[in-house]
Nucleic acid binder design. Structure first.
Length: 324
DNA sequence: CATCAGGGCCCTG
DNA sequence: CAGGGCCCTGAT
């Protein structure tokens, strides 16, 4: 195994971001349903995460510096050099987008308030938003997620980090920064296969190629309608209906809930109907009826609430479905 | 030891 | 639109 590049990020800049009210810091920055990845670490009140922007790698620390009703996020940006104010602002904007800090949740809260099932969930997570990584990083994660158990997905991503990532040292943490798309674009497919990613090597390379050639403009995609966005994302090799539905969440399309994969079907069957297995059409009709244009975010609340419970106490029926 | 499905997707017929 | 194939792993 090659030696992993190391990078010390010893310069830091601090800015403050003011989310809309209400804001749930921990629920927003930490998602128990996501598998752990080497590019971030969380403890209550603080998230450390790496971020690549073009050729630059940064370390970010987000701290909860407010309350649900008077929210404030202190963002510390760690870099290997001093940054211009423009750069700092750009990073702050990116963080604000990724964590959806400026969304108006008032109509959403009003809908959940009237929903018997959701009221206790809302009380626990009032102010939570969906979060995302950069588009390229999300795609890598979703590709290694496909047709694999969680343990294997974790292993694949870790292998990729060790082969192509950069170890970033900042604020007492050591986390992996992602490679640039050019690196995977130029890597021989057999090198990727040696990392046990299997047939996914082809998707990883072809997606990296699209990014390396500038064919994917994440900020332009943000401006598209749901239908246009979906159509564009499906053009990426290896992106199908399941991946696209996760990506719609990353783009904060809180009305987009059109796909239920088999394992999720069982979870929603339990949560919504208290049954083992309900047809997906029935699940889709139910979320539409209950939550309308907020159905994706509402489902996210249910999901994270469940997985958060699992972190603190065993949920036997769930364990069987997750199959680590 | 063999077989199989897994938190999909592509390609073919 | 249905169904086979795909890398690899752990479960059976």
């Amino acid at each position: 195994m090659d030696i992993i590049p190391q990078m010390a990020l010893s310069t830091s800049h601090e800015i403050e971001l003011q989310p809309t009210t209400p804001f749930h810091f921990d629920g927003t920055v930490h998602k128990p349903s996501h598998f752990p990845s080497g590019d971030s670490i969380w403890e209550p009140g603080t998230l450390w995460v790496t971020q690549r922007m073009g050729d630059d790698l940064f370390g970010l620390k987000l701290q909860n510096a407010g309350t649900v009703d008077a929210p404030l996020v202190r963002l510390t940006i760690f870099a290997d050099r001093a940054l211009t104010t423009d750069k700092i602002t750009a990073i702050g904007d990116e963080v604000a987008y990724n964590f959806d800090l400026y969304v108006d949740l008032a109509p959403f809260n009003a809908i959940l308030e009237r929903d018997e099932l959701m009221r206790p969930v809302l009380n626990r997570w009032l102010g939570m938003r969906n979060m995302s990584d950069s588009l390229y990083e999300s795609l890598i994660v979703y590709i290694v997620l496909q047709n694999a158990t969680v343990r294997r997905s974790v292993q694949m991503l870790d292998n990729l980090f060790r082969a192509y990532g950069t170890r970033l040292h900042f604020d007492g943490q050591a986390l992996y920064g992602f490679w640039s798309p050019e690196v995977l674009d130029g890597a021989p497919e057999e090198d990727l296969r040696a990392l046990k990613v299997g047939y996914r090597a082809k998707s990883l390379k072809r997606i990296s190629n699209q990014f390396a050639r500038g064919k994917v403009d994440a900020s332009a995609l943000r401006r598209l309608s749901n239908e246009e966005l979906k159509r564009e994302l499906l053009k990426l090799y290896g992106v199908g209906p399941a991946t696209v539905s996760y990506l719609m969440g990353d783009f904060h399309r809180y009305d987009a809930f059109e796909h239920v994969s088999p394992w999720e079907q069982r979870i929603y069957s339990r949560l919504l109907f208290d049954e083992e297995l309900v047809p997906t059409e029935q699940i889709l009709a139910e979320v539409e009826r209950r939550w309308r244009c907020w159905k994706m975010l509402a489902a996210h609340y249910l999901f994270e609430d469940l997985f958060w419970r699992r972190e603190h106490e065993p949920v036997p029926w769930l364990e069987e479905l997750i199959r680590l």
